[in-house]
């Protein structure tokens, strides 16, 4: 089949080092992947095209890039699937949220620094057993869902929080942290969760789902981050705005059956947190002008008893 790859190029060594797009018209096999196409370019057409790639089977994590605006592995994206509806070129850009070194090669150092920051190694206490640790297979299978992470950085590329705050640990590092928190052999859960409760940790995720969407290995980093939040709160880490927001949300639902949007920010930030509360005033004014101001008197919905029973049953199960 014929296809056109429209590749974002950048060479810091060139006389005119501005990023630009370059198009390559290719004739490839129907089963060819985007990576096959890019390799064909660099081996047969344009030797200067620069990208990372190695295994060609979605296990080494080298070839994450943005394909038609969304992060993915070039090696497991078929060209035939990537051609936009109605035809036209496939747009290929480097992974996002990382500095571009050259063409499709980005600087992963901040990525690895964050992985390092979660102390991603097993920390058992006490003497090692003579033979293996005894651990349930279910726990190992559950962890395998996260160990399947190949550190390709697709999630980091498309993370909407990292786009505005580079201090966020990010989905990959937090998923790695999750695997150690849930490992039955690890005894550092308390200190791990305390660290993850801080700024840049689990509460900075906005639950946009992008990382779940783009992960090529089904790791679902956001789900792991949410599970870490639960664990942090169970451990008594209820002081962050995030945890207080979650508590206030749940309290409101339990109490009235629906969300009290006036009380939510007050309970989250605290009534006497003047700067934060003042910061909400413009939001309130805009809501008022748009006719979206929540009611001042918050009434319970009919059938709230049923909702409370659900809460009671869930809480008794913990």
């Amino acid at each position: 089949m014929k296809a056109t790859l429209r590749v974002r190029r950048f060479d810091p060594d060139s006389d005119t080092p501005e990023a630009h797009f370059q198009e390559y018209d290719l004739d490839v096999e129907d089963s060819a992947t985007v990576l096959d196409g890019l390799i064909k370019v660099r081996e047969e057409v344009d030797g200067t095209l620069t990208l990372r790639c190695s295994c060609r089977s979605a296990i080494c994590g080298s070839c994450a890039m943005r394909i038609n605006g969304q992060a993915g592995l070039a090696c497991n994206t078929k060209i035939s699937d990537a051609v936009p509806r109605g035809g036209g070129p496939i747009t290929i850009e480097p992974a996002g949220n990382m500095q571009i070194i050259k063409d499709l090669v980005v600087d992963f150092q901040p990525f690895w620094d964050k992985v390092r920051a979660v102390e991603p190694w097993l920390q058992p206490e006490g003497p090692e057993p003579e033979t293996e640790y005894v651990a349930p297979n279910d726990a190992m299978l559950h962890e395998a869902g996260v160990m399947a992470c190949i550190m390709c950085g697709a999630c980091v590329s498309d993370c909407t929080v990292l786009a505005v705050d580079s201090n966020f640990l990010g989905p990959a590092a937090l998923a790695k942290a999750y695997r150690l928190v849930v490992d039955p052999r690890d005894d550092a859960e308390a200190s791990r969760l305390a660290r993850l409760d801080e700024y840049g940790g689990v509460w900075d995720c906005t639950r946009c789902m992008e990382c779940v969407e783009v992960c090529p290995k089904g790791v679902a980093p956001m789900d792991r981050i949410m599970a870490l939040r639960d664990k942090a709160m169970e451990r008594g880490h209820t002081g962050t705005y995030g945890a207080r927001h979650a508590d206030a949300f749940a309290d409101s639902i339990k109490h009235s059956g629906w969300l009290d949007e006036l009380k939510l920010p007050i309970k989250t930030f605290g009534l006497f947190n003047i700067p934060k509360i003042l910061g909400l005033v413009p939001v309130g004014i805009r809501a008022q002008l748009a006719g979206k101001r929540p009611p001042i008197f918050h009434k319970s919905i009919p059938g709230v008893q049923g909702i409370r029973r659900i809460f009671d049953r869930m809480e008794s199960r913990r």
């Binding site: 299978l141 962890e143 150690l180």
Partner: peptide, 11 residues
């Protein structure tokens, strides 16, 4: 295994 490899287990 002691370093943390999640080897498959028996019952």
């Amino acid at each position: 295994e002691h370093m943390g490899v999640i080897f498959s287990r028996d019952e």
